[in-house]
């Protein structure tokens, strides 16, 4: 029984990294009804950029690295918007989808060229803290990641529901044409959405780097898959849904890994997705309807 709870808690805490990636996918989807497949790659890219600080100031504390990853993520988000969304007509979802695939490959390859593809150590906070309750342990650094993702969600919800920018964003996501008629600059709102998700992605990448301890371009594909699954299970467009689904998938896969082994683990995650599609096709928090 202890094994079960231990795997569950490890998985759930680790799931907060999936949740962070899921938020990014879901936000872009909520606002633009498009898929940004380069998101996980850009997030990891942002985390790599954070490391540049260490090149300049060798002894910079991890918080500084994380903050730079955050900023770099925002910049990358804007670049992705510019290259994959800005110039492509809105009526052409396939073209943007493919453009973001191109961007994913490009970001991966840039990382590979700058690091020769080798894994790079990433700084972490509280990585030597281990909370113990008898045999049961909780990783301190994962608790921090968990706290950060909760903070991000809180900040994001505040941004969406308490600011004018949030109002405009929600307006665009619900009725683009009506928003346009009300004088909202849809292009600007879309770009801002990308910057915001990019900032989040930078944090997500840094948190992933911190919790794994190493960064590698190997991370991008699994994160993309898991992030997408989390988005669907949470309900496309729902931020709290992505968080809860992230934790759920993290816990679920780790428990199954414990009992069914690593080779079958991901198969069950896919099955979980199908179960959701059959019994709750809208995900945990189905959006109330809108376009599409």
């Amino acid at each position: 029984m202890l094994d079960f709870f231990q795997s569950l808690s490890d998985g759930v805490l680790f799931g907060s990294t999936y949740a962070l990636i899921g938020i990014g996918f879901t936000l872009v989807f909520g606002v633009m009804h498009k898929l940004n497949l380069s998101y996980a790659a850009a997030s990891v890219g942002g985390a790599y950029c954070g490391l540049l600080v260490l090149q300049v100031f060798a002894g910079a504390p991890p918080v500084v690295v994380f903050f730079c990853a955050f900023l770099a993520g925002g910049l990358l988000g804007w670049l992705v918007y510019l290259t994959c969304f800005h110039f492509i007509p809105i009526s052409n979802p396939l073209a943007t989808l493919m453009a973001t695939v191109g961007m994913l490959l490009l970001i991966d390859e840039i990382i590979v060229h700058l690091t020769a593809g080798m894994p790079v150590g990433y700084p972490a906070m509280f990585d030597d803290v281990m909370l113990r309750m008898g045999e049961f342990t909780v990783r301190g650094d994962l608790l921090m990641v968990f706290a950060v993702s909760m903070l991000c969600m809180g900040g994001l919800l505040a941004l969406l529901y308490k600011t004018r920018l949030g109002l405009a964003t929600r307006a665009v996501s619900q009725q683009t044409v009506a928003a346009l008629l009300c004088g909202i600059r849809v292009g600007q709102v879309n770009a801002m959405t990308f910057v915001i998700t990019g900032l989040l992605g930078g944090i997500a990448g840094a948190m992933i780097g911190a919790s794994v301890g190493t960064l590698s371009p190997l991370l991008t594909t699994p994160l993309t898959t898991k992030g997408l699954i989390v988005t669907v299970i949470g309900g496309l467009g729902s931020v709290p849904g992505a968080i809860i689904a992230g934790l759920l998938v993290g816990g679920f896969e780790n428990v199954l890994q414990q009992y069914r082994g690593v080779t079958e683990r991901d198969l069950y995650v896919m099955l979980l997705l199908f179960v959701f599609l059959v019994f709750r096709p809208g995900g945990l928090f189905a959006p109330k309807g809108g376009r599409d």
């Binding site: 231990q6 795997s7 490890d10 680790f14 992933i208 590698s216 190997l218 699994p222 780790n254």
Partner: peptide, 14 residues
Amino acid sequence: KWLLADTNFATQVR
């Protein structure tokens, strides 16, 4: 056992 791109090794190390 784990996979090439795995990130969480808590169970295996336990």
